[in-house]
Write a protein that binds this DNA or RNA. Sequence first.
RNA 1: GGCGACGUAGCCAAGUGGUAAGGCAGAGGUCUGCAAAACCUCCAUCCCCAGUUCGAUUCUGGGCGUCGCCUCCA
Length: 471
Amino acid sequence: MTLRLHNSLTGTKDVFEPLEDSHVRMYTCGPTVWNFAHIGNLRAFLFYDLLRRHLQVAGYRVTHVMNITDIDDRILDQAMHAGTTIAEYTKPYAEAFFEDMKMLRVRPAEHYPRATEHIQEMIRMISTLLERGNAYVADGDVYFRIASFPHYGELSHLDREGLRAGARVAADKYDKESVSDFALWKKAQPGDEKIGAAWDAPFGKGRPGWHIECSAMSKRYLGDTLDIHAGGVDLMFPHHENEIAQSEAANQRQLSRFWLHSEHLADATGEKMSKSAGGFTTLRDLIAAGHDPLAIRLFLIANAHYRSRLRLSEESLHAAGEQVRRLQDFARRLKLPVAPKDGGRLAERVAEVRHAYREALDDDLNLPQGLGHVFELLREANAALDSGEVGEAAARELLLLMADVDAHADVSAAQDTTLAAEVEQLIAQREAARKARDFAAADRIRDELRDRGIALEDSKEGVRWRRVAKV
RNA sequence: GGCGACGUAGCCAAGUGGUAAGGCAGAGGUCUGCAAAACCUCCAUCCCCAGUUCGAUUCUGGGCGUCGCCUCCA
């Protein structure tokens, strides 16, 4: 089993091996907590989760660091308007982020460093860059001197000429040597201190630029060279390019061996969802609209490969919801008593599918393909269950397969097993009515439960129920 | 203008130089008191044109279309 990952640095799928045996150090760009995360943001975070989970499946210990950006221009503006401090302003959004992660069953990272708690590390790195001549002070701001870093642009494959042609005119506001030089430190403006957004530094009171936090915090928690750095495609330039320039100029070491980028989520019109363009959807919106968080989870990680654009639609969310239901129903069937012995060669087939599933995931995390194999087998296995041909050996293999799937998808584990006593009573009443062949009464009870969001299914093994969307 | 990606059934989507996984939706059927679930059957020649090849959806070139990045951005 060889894990291959698409590396933006080389533009190809490369065999992944960590620097340190069996231990992966991974840094992923987290949320800027100036607002609720929209589900395009969440797609990226779920991509990190898929990556992390698969690295663990592949046998690695993972140290995952995900930053919380709690200072940037938008936060400053908002806090200023709200008449509060940036710490107070960002608090509820940071909390909402963790709630979202929990609802979507994202496995927590080892560290969630916040930018405002690592100002000293940033100041140290900026000082190093100044000493080395990679940075300069201009009117209280500190800029990175791109001319001092010949490799600039190699990740995003943008050359200096292209940058110059595309650069917006910023010279009116800043006193930079070159228009593409970027800020490491921004001089404090009136009012910044009052909202808790100004820090003392050898080069003057101010606040960090956007990019330096990732360089400083990844070094602090993971060292000079990471195995993997991941983010959304829109971060490739300038953010990741700038991180590379800062870190490699300061540390004289490669920042990351693998760079992974996830594609955008598009809205219903097919265009990238973005906060500034207005009209974005949050997890809360989708849940309020009746979507199961697990359906949203599966949609985001499995409806399309992570490097393909994904379009948000009711239909796709519904399809994902049906897939979740099928996986859950199947997992539940497996818990029932099995047949005395196996018929056919199902156990072998399951072993084949387990292998194919693993290979798909090893091939740059191709979960959509892996699940394709699984659903194909699900049909065969359900048929075998229907005809009582699933014995212990096949059932054992099937449970292993479902565990394989849950290692990534994590949607099939039965949830919500407690029923209110009243509902249990209604089910019992209906059973009594059915025995007495009073089907009118039985159907009345079933309809009533359906209205309350509980669907009943009569099977050979007894009555099953599950939660469904209320009508 | 520069760089790049994509275009597969009603919708979503995987994929390969040798006649297209899977899911949703739809139609018919088995089972069921009825339903639901499950299962069975049906439903595509892969944007267009040219080229390479014994053979291309898969490679090359051109065209059309959609989208992304070019310092707010997951």
